[in-house]
């Protein structure tokens, strides 16, 4: 069983939800990045999304845009991200998903991307601007079906028929975009998200992780009962931005991971199951 499937089945047995964390490689510096991400993994992150910065991140809000800009200034590239993945793989066993836009991957070379990602110990890739219609040229190099996942996105605007199609080609988990907007934007509507999860469940048996716009443990707590995992990105990046060179940044991030993980735990009382 691959690391992603294994992780979700372990969590299921424990009755827990996955905390998926996004961090940009090389933010605030390449050297700090390894230390910070390692601390987050050790603090209880279940799945890591390793962000490879792109110069033109059209699906990201200001927080992740600035993170990408800092990382690029550091000279972060996909090659560096592969090295980082290898280094992290020596320190942690959690699934690592490479997260980027298509152009850096396309420029790297699609075949080498697959081989190098596997060799580095990555478990999959999520490409924000690669809809399933255009993804064949990427996955045609993937020899085995099960060792590397293309994490597919479903949006609130995705019609049911299209959802079905996306789900049919997905593996690992499905990433449900919680709202129509860029990453880190506010105005989460838990009722809407719940409805989208219900729709998506009717077309897939894969785990569903929800992300974009979940900024506080309170948001996470509200959505956790309905999803299999929650993705946090901008909230971590905001912490990095606010404490760039602070000596306790690693501790702060670790504490934040623990807070989110705590929020994902089911409450002992039954009343959380009631309609809100």
């Amino acid at each position: 069983m691959n690391r992603l499937d294994k992780k979700f089945s372990e969590l299921k047995i424990k009755g827990e939800k996955a905390l998926v964390g996004f961090v940009a490689v090389g933010d605030p510096t390449l050297r700090d990045s390894l230390r910070l991400i390692t601390a987050m993994c050790r603090a209880g992150l279940d799945i890591l999304e390793l962000g490879i910065p792109f110069s033109d991140p059209t699906a990201d809000g200001p927080v992740i845009q600035r993170a990408a800009a800092r990382a690029l200034k550091e000279g972060t590239s996909l090659t560096r991200a592969m090295e980082m993945t290898k280094a992290l793989r020596e320190r942690t066993d959690i699934p690592i998903i490479l997260f980027s836009y298509y152009n850096p991957i396309f420029a790297y070379g699609l075949e080498s991307f697959y081989r190098d990602s596997l060799a580095a110990g990555a478990d999959g890739v999520l490409i924000v601007d690669l809809p399933h219609e255009e993804s064949r040229e990427l996955t045609e190099y993937w020899e085995k079906a099960n060792d590397f996942s293309l994490i597919r996105l479903v949006a609130p605007t995705t019609p049911k028929e299209r959802m079905k199609h996306i789900a049919a080609h997905a593996s690992g988990f499905l990433y449900l975009v919680s709202k129509t907007g860029v990453t880190g934007s506010g105005g989460l509507d838990a009722g809407d998200v719940r409805n989208h999860i219900v729709d998506l469940r009717s077309v897939t048996r894969l785990p569903i992780c929800v992300g974009f716009g979940i900024s506080t443990p309170e948001d996470a707590k509200i959505l956790a009962p309905h999803a299999d995992g929650i993705v946090i990105g901008s909230a971590f990046e905001r912490t990095i931005e606010e404490h760039l060179s602070g000596p306790d940044l690693a501790n702060r991030l670790a504490e934040q991971v623990k807070d989110f993980k705590e929020a994902l735990k089911p409450e002992p009382l039954k009343h959380t199951q009631k309609q809100r």
Binding site: T58, E133, E134, T157, T158
Partner: peptide, 10 residues
Amino acid sequence: GRYVAETLMA
């Protein structure tokens, strides 16, 4: 082609 976020596809 179309290389955009899923939110825009529909």
